[in-house]
Design a protein around this nucleic acid. Structure first.
Lengths: 242, 242
DNA sequence: GAACACACTCTTGAATACAAGATGGCGTGC
DNA sequence: GCACGCCATCTTGTATTCAAGAGTGTGTTC
């Protein structure tokens, strides 16, 4: 048979453009599969299986899996396969609390500053718009919501803090998205972000902190309810005990 | 670069006791070499070289190196070797600031709590001792110092926060140790930790926060001076530009 | 003498081969 | 019919092999 199994990757290969690391591609794709519930929490799988699915060898697959493990998305069982980490509410709540800590620190610093970082302008353009111009698609607003909080932290200039916060946010994303399936949360997000932003711009530190805290706590509480419900109704036969 | 690096691992191999992962062992050993300046910031090396030194193949070495990369200790240059990350003061300062944020949040929570977590008892036993019983060895006190701050965060019960904080602390450790080469800092550490601990035990939140902040800032400032001096005096020919 | 080009070596990235242990099913003994 | 034990298979961990590009040094040419 022909050697046509070679994927037509080279489509847009102008300039030097590195093939971008097989391991990296697999890492991204696996994470996406987890986020999209293609791989469900508790699911078990083997390196060979993933390698076959990705049309690669085990080597880059293992590299990707180890990264995902360090990120907290999967676990390896010694000589007994991999597993998507089951949902752990305590962990999610801890991550939410960590977000509160990081973002409050960021806001506090932002309010102390005289000049406004450029990131705040971007946020103004997105969130301080007339109601008629508000976006309504849940997933879009969900992504913008994450970006809002991420940019608040980025704006205060500490790259390490921003990195950690981005990781925490990504880790929560899988359940935070569920929060935006209701229209009420979408419009509440617009009004809450607007309030927070205005408080920051007016250097009303304490007010901004309170608003931010309750905004995140609301999200946390909602997600908790939704996720509980989801876990009860979906796949009641799935038994993650082992 | 002694060839006697073959460890007598099998000494205590009773029960099942897994050989503990070659990759893990290499990871730990490499990190130690970096911390002990056996591998200097800016040094370049190849996977093959490390593999030979560790008496293993490239596979576990690569796994260890990728972990170290994600931890922020080394960098890989595409098909051109690995490099111990050169010192970057901005990063160190950002990590110090991140510590301040996390530890202040922890202390705030500890002060709000009625019951004292058991970790505080351990800390009392170590730091609230008569002057005569104080330890004087710099490296020992340095390790205890890191443990002090780590336990403060652990005590407030958020495991994710504690994990991040531990990572940040470890990352700073390489230069923080230099702070404890002077006796003055050692005794200052005892008195400052004592003050902080007492303030927490008496639920004097604001006082504890101020003390903690200035304690960390002092450490940050000292380390900055020492490290600058070290970098100037040692190996002035090393050029890490590229 | 200087500059350019070629080739060789060394590097990481990926695939394959080998090793050892965990798991589950099947068969046998009671 | 049930329980125990063995074996076949599947899993990850590690070593080795193959591939391709980056960098360097040398030789040649102007």
């Amino acid at each position: 048979m022909s050697a046509s199994s070679k994927p037509p990757v080279a489509s847009g290969l102008r300039r030097k453009e590195r093939p971008e690391n097989l391991a990296e591609r697999i890492y991204i794709q696996l994470k996406q599969e987890i986020f999209e519930f293609h791989l469900l929490p508790g699911d078990r799988f083997s390196e060979t299986e993933v390698a076959a699915r990705m049309a690669a060898s085990r080597t880059p697959v293992r590299e990707a899996l180890y990264r995902l493990q360090r990120d907290g998305y999967v676990d390896v069982h010694f000589r007994s396969g991999w597993q998507v980490k089951p949902f752990d509410f305590r962990t999610f709540e801890e991550l939410y609390d960590l977000r509160v800590v990081l973002e409050c620190a960021a806001v506090r610093r932002l309010c102390e500053r005289e000049r406004e970082p450029s990131q705040l302008d971007d946020l103004k353009r997105i969130w301080l718009v007339p109601e008629a111009e508000r976006l309504t698609d849940g997933q879009t607003v969900s992504a913008l919501d994450e970006r809002f909080h991420t940019m608040l932290v980025e704006a205060c200039g500490n790259r390490e803090m921003a990195l950690i916060h981005a990781q925490v946010s990504e880790r929560i994303r899988i359940i935070r998205r569920l929060d935006f399936t209701k229209d009420a949360r979408v419009s509440a997000t617009y009004s809450e972000h607007g309030q927070i932003l205005r408080a920051i711009l007016q250097r009303r530190s304490e007010e901004a902190l309170l608003l931010l805290k309750s905004h995140i706590e609301a999200s946390k509480a909602e997600v908790r309810k939704i996720t509980l419900h989801m876990l009860h109704s979906a796949r009641p036969q799935s038994d993650t005990s082992d």
